[in-house]
Amino acid sequence: MRHDREHKSVAAYLCGYISHMPARLDFLQSMTGLILALFIAAHLLFEASIIISKDAMYAVTRLFEGYYFFGESYPGIISFLAAAIFLLFILHAMLAIRKFPSSYRQYQLFMSHMQHIEHGDTRLWFYQAITGFMMFFLGSVHLYIMMTQSSDIGPYASADRIYSDWMWPLYLLLLICVILHAAIGLYRLALKWGIFEGARPKQRRKLLRKLMFITLFVYLGISLMSLGTYMVIGYQHSDRAGERFILSNEQPAEVQP
């Protein structure tokens, strides 16, 4: 380690006394992460409305398209939301990438440390780094499609995309990545800033860790179940792929022969 800070470059003299950027970047990384994690927590639950019924999922879709406020659906709202999330996602990725190993040597030092020390929270960070890296690609694909094809959301439209349009392998990977990343992220966020630490931080950490694992498995369970449901619907609907869903009480009465 180099503790010697006497040898400053010209930039250090020109820049004056202190820089505020490290503090702001750190805060911004945490904030964007928090917003994204809370968004995902809600998003996955809304998505899981398909487990209840197609009608329930359709109602949720129409809610976000503004149907219950304006009397008709505006998928543009979803495009706008997706674009906003995409921007946050890019900002968060840009900030978080600062923490990645920046050379093979750093990577190797970290890996060797992690393998020897067998320390749970060190490993958790590594899982976050890996899932974060994977989401650069997986998340971008998903967000871009949501931005550009926001009108294709619904019990049949989504199921067709997942099954007939072969999105399910991407969604499966993205699902696992995002849940791991967000659950671990929220736990680490609480410890990083000392939120909820209470009078006995060491005990509180154990509780937070337990809560993190419970959240992780509950969300994995719910989300895999909802992906499975979309798969089944997509399979059953595959010969009529592209056809839209109509609420059961809005369907035209069948003509009696």
């Binding site: 020109l14 004056g16 950027m21 702001r24 000392g194």
Partner: peptide, 16 residues
């Protein structure tokens, strides 16, 4: 971290 954040957010004397 919390303490340093409040200083980093408040103080405007540095060049940033």
């Amino acid at each position: 971290r919390r303490k340093m954040l409040t200083i980093g957010m408040k103080d405007k004397s540095g060049c940033g």
